[in-house]
């Protein structure tokens, strides 16, 4: 799940360099903006059929938080 998610995440933000891992604080990425935010929400919706609403998304900080949130909701 981790490797696949990181690939999807990088693709979504159009990141080519190897700069994303589970500890990455995604809001600190140079590519992070409101389009990136909506794109990550849309990607998670498309791939995992999960919609993370704004108030919940706000609490997530690292890529691992995203992965855990998906895991929690899929369980």
């Amino acid at each position: 799940m981790n490797a696949k998610f990181i690939e999807l995440f990088k693709e979504t933000l159009e990141i080519e360099e190897d700069i994303v891992n589970t500890e990455t604080k995604f809001r600190e990425l140079e590519q992070w903006d409101s389009l990136a935010f909506l794109s990550v929400i849309a990607m998670i919706d498309e791939e995992y059929d999960i919609v993370i609403e704004g108030n919940d998304f706000k609490k997530l900080v690292t890529v691992n938080d995203l992965i855990e949130e998906i895991g929690k909701r899929k369980a």
Binding site: L38, I41, E53, G54, N55, F57, K58
Partner: peptide
């Protein structure tokens, strides 16, 4: 519009 958080709103 639940996609925006209360802070963002």
């Amino acid at each position: 519009s639940p996609i925006l958080s209360d802070d963002d709103k």
